[in-house]
Design a protein around this nucleic acid. Structure first.
Lengths: 351, 351
DNA sequence: ATGAAAGCGCTAACAC
DNA sequence: GTGTTAGCGCTTTCAT
């Protein structure tokens, strides 16, 4: 069997209690000398604490759950890596719940799992769906019942302490569309993510706002509902071209990639015949022959913020009374070569 | 506090033992009626088992560690997702050790962490480095001491039961190089991964073999050591072009992407001036204007195999006596547009 | 400054 | 069939 705290105690001629203290780093009232001796013996004996036992005995666990959608999107993978890196550096283990499946049933299972994993915190990175009020309420109830800090990324309104780390997707959509408008485009399509996602709606709102600001009434026929995957983007292209657009705002880079692929198949040249702007700024953007202009989402920063903030919170003596706050990250345009200027000024100023 | 097995027992008027049995699914000797009653009450009371406690009490834990390098490579992300999906479906939780850092120190930490996590199995996906015999031995010792099944992907020689799921990278390198040769190329560069990785060497060997088979003595100057990242590929291009190559075998698609990017910057046209073949077959390959020819690595299949096989092993009553075996996956060429035919036949047949 | 003892939630041998 | 009991490895009062 593995070497336990008792083995160390015996070897040192002290009690388990002392070993526990000596190894626990806290305000331990042992003679520094004793502490040293115990630590050395433990080291020598290759002692490893048993987290399960510690956790059972009342210590908060060191496991943090991370709930994320499709990690094959490098943008999300990046987020996961950064978070996981910070957490691990601080001695936490991360339990990944990476699931592309959605729907109520899946969420039900997810929550059940989480409940029996005795985590010390949760990072809930699933996209928020505003319409599912009932399901969301059930979710809040069950997650909040865990009594652990919960970090989210937009929308969710858990009561547990934690922070909601948001990105201003409305502005992202606005900037993207405005850029297209400023380049002289008038008939501008949009490939959205699932419309029931808050983040999709926000981008859509921003896109609408830019259009309206330019005196163009948004045309629902110019919005194609995708699913944030390349396939969605590919399907969108023929449809939107059929609507006579000269430019497309893809709500994420993945879908923009799908448009690239589809454009090649249909023989449509970017940016000559079609201007394109994405959102995310994934590293792949600039390997394309016509590098993709996009809106940068600082995933790395956000991930690192989440990790550090969570660690800090967990270290506080009494986070339990803590409250919830929201933090916003701001979009920036990242211009490359996929948008072509068609006029001199803005079209609505031409009259 | 959370509802425990005792609460349920009390509510049912039975003992904890009965509840434990009823919920444990096993060959339980309780009246079916009692079982039903217990289960229902548990459900109603919203009871969730505490894994930590179960594990402490001797039950094998349900946590499986997955050790992987940079998950931002969609190829690896895919592997992780598939494995994680299968595992979760079977009621296991996956603890991710995703770390791009390498080196002995990091590995030391990794193993320490793992040791105190009481996992019930380990999937060790780090690349094998044959030269580090000493470190490897230390690693074997410590991991094997855990007494849990260990799955690997190439090279490692743990003694623990499990399976070593390999891909025939030698053949992959061979196929890639031969394809280039058959297209009439003679001066063929190679961007390798780190030379201390077994998987890099294998691909290199295959590439050498193809060259020799074609009567060409491999030239070490035509091999650029990369690191499996886009940046490595980007750096390789100017060097290899300086060596007068007309074709490059990139040991993975990521580096091929770096070459694409670099080629754009230097104004080198693919495939007119440079033929390129990669390895992995990631989904990005076909969004490029000139889609990347590559060697397919069936990551999804391999991941799903690993997951299922592991679950099966864990379910066996007595896997502890089990042994280790190796399974090989075979490469396939996936041809798209990045390789140009320069001659009619094979160059070495031209004389 | 240190030890003894109780107990965290669950399981498994052993009783009845 | 079902209950009792004794831990699993650790933490934490409370004694000393």
């Amino acid at each position: 069997m593995r070497v336990t705290i008792r083995d160390v105690a015996k070897a040192c001629g002290v009690s388990c209690a002392s070993v526990s203290m000596a190894l626990g780093d806290k305000r331990c009232r042992l003679k520094p000398e004793t502490v040293k001796r115990i630590r050395e013996t433990a080291e020598k004996m290759n002692y490893r604490p048993n987290h399960a036992a510690a956790s059972l005995a009342g210590r908060p666990s060191r496991m943090i759950g991370v709930v994320l959608e499709d990690i094959r999107n490098p943008h999300i993978a990046q987020l996961y890596m950064v978070i996981s890196g910070v957490l691990r550096e601080n001695g936490f283990m991360v339990v990944g719940h990476i699931t592309e499946n959605t729907g109520e049933e899946e969420e039900e299972r997810l929550v059940s799992e989480i409940a029996s994993e005795n985590l010390c915190a949760l990072i809930w990175g699933r996209p928020y769906e505003p319409d599912r009020t009932e399901e969301n309420n059930r979710l809040y109830e069950r997650i909040d019942a865990l009594g652990i800090p919960v970090f989210t990324m937009g929308g969710y309104e858990f009561a547990s302490p934690g922070v909601n780390v948001c990105f201003d997707y409305e502005k992202a959509g606005y900037l993207a569309a405005r850029h297209l408008l400023e380049a002289g485009h008038v008939r501008i399509g949009c490939v959205s993510g699932p419309k029931n996602y808050e983040v999709s709606r926000q981008r859509l709102e921003g896109y609408f706002r830019a259009l309206r600001e330019a005196g163009i009434e948004p045309d629902p026929k110019l919005v194609f509902e995708g699913d944030y995957t390349r396939e969605g983007g590919s399907r969108a292209l023929p449809y939107l071209m059929g609507q006579g657009v000269t430019a497309i705002f893809a709500q994420n880079d993945e879908m923009a990639f799908g448009i690239y692929r589809s454009a090649r198949v249909y023989g449509i040249r970017i940016p000559e015949e079609l201007s394109l702007i994405g959102c995310d700024n994934v590293p792949f953007d600039d390997v394309l022959e016509i590098p993709l202009s996009t809106v940068e989402v600082p995933t790395g920063e956000m991930g690192s913020f989440i990790g550090k903030e969570l660690v800090t919170l967990l270290q506080e003596e009494e986070w339990a009374g803590g409250t919830r706050r929201t933090v916003y990250y701001d979009p920036d345009l990242y211009l490359r070569g996929s948008v072509r200027k068609v006029g001199e000024g803005m079209p609505w100023k031409n009259e």
